[in-house]
């Protein structure tokens, strides 16, 4: 018993101060993309070709679809001109699929809060059922850590619950495999109205590395109405937390 108490004292208090203080992210973290089309030589398509996921398009200017992006380093590595890079800004979540499109000079659209009625229901208490529909356990793992002492999701009134019947919505990970399609739809049905859907990770948004492969459905879109998209492969826990807090109107800026 004494040893357990001593261990408790040694381990200390480890819950991060976010969102009151900025998060600590790794130096090499790849967050919100920064595009500098003015640096692009004419007809250069190096970044477009370097992306295996079709996230970058180069028409009038370059744009990057954060819904398809795996935030791998390949495009930035391929560009010798510094026209494309990733900042350390972890705020990536958005309400609409098209808001994930990043184009230089265009306004950035971070996720906004739910409408008033939903907010009055869920704003101070949100229970979510997680459904892994082909997720590789990286997205699941970084959803799980939100419940550890580091992030302590409970302090925001958000909790992952065991049954869809106890939930206010579902958080989906994975590209929605054909073999999980029915189970996903049934889980959604089991959640009482009104309810929300969150697509977390590149797979759930648009299929991720499995986009267009025949055993999956390119994510949740088209199957269920999505209220929040959280990009990343997997999204950093801070990105998920930031998205959830924005959806609940708990974040400014």
């Amino acid at each position: 018993m004494i040893k357990t108490i001593l261990a408790r004292m040694k381990q200390g208090h480890r819950t991060i101060k976010y969102p009151k203080e900025p998060p600590v992210l790794p130096d090499l973290f790849r967050g919100y993309p920064e595009l500098h089309p003015e640096k692009c030589p004419p007809d250069c398509r190096l970044c477009v070709e370097a992306c295996a996921h079709g996230a970058i398009s180069q028409e009038a200017t370059i744009s990057l679809d954060m819904g398809k992006c795996l935030f791998c380093p390949e495009c930035a590595d391929a560009c010798p001109h510094g026209a494309i890079s990733f900042s350390r800004d972890a705020r990536l979540a958005a309400n609409r699929r098209e808001d994930l499109m990043v184009t230089a000079g265009e306004e950035r659209r971070l996720a906004r809060a739910l409408e008033e009625k939903m907010l009055s229901l869920f704003g101070r208490s949100l229970k979510l059922r997680e459904v892994s529909a082909g997720g590789c356990n990286a997205c699941e793992a970084d959803v799980n850590v939100l419940s550890t002492v580091v992030f302590d999701l409970g302090r925001f009134g958000i909790q992952f619950v065991a049954s869809p019947r106890h939930a206010d919505g579902i958080l989906v990970t994975g590209p929605v495999t054909e073999n999980m399609r029915l189970a996903l739809l049934k889980t959604y049905e089991a959640v009482p109205e009104p309810k929300i859907v969150i697509a977390s990770g590149a797979c759930a948004i648009n299929g991720g590395p499995f986009i267009n492969s025949p055993e999956q459905h390119n994510g949740v879109n088209g199957l269920l109405p999505v209220d929040l998209y959280i990009p990343g492969c997997p999204p950093h826990p801070i990105t998920i937390l930031d998205g959830l807090l924005r959806l609940l109107g708990r974040m400014e800026g």
Partner: peptide
């Protein structure tokens, strides 16, 4: 339930996506 068809997807490859599917 998690079957994503990784082996079938790698056939005819390596494709540009194969590396990223292997990571997952």
């Amino acid at each position: 339930y998690q079957h994503r068809g990784i082996e079938a997807g790698a056939a005819g490859g390596p494709h540009p996506k194969t590396l990223f599917q292997m990571e997952t």
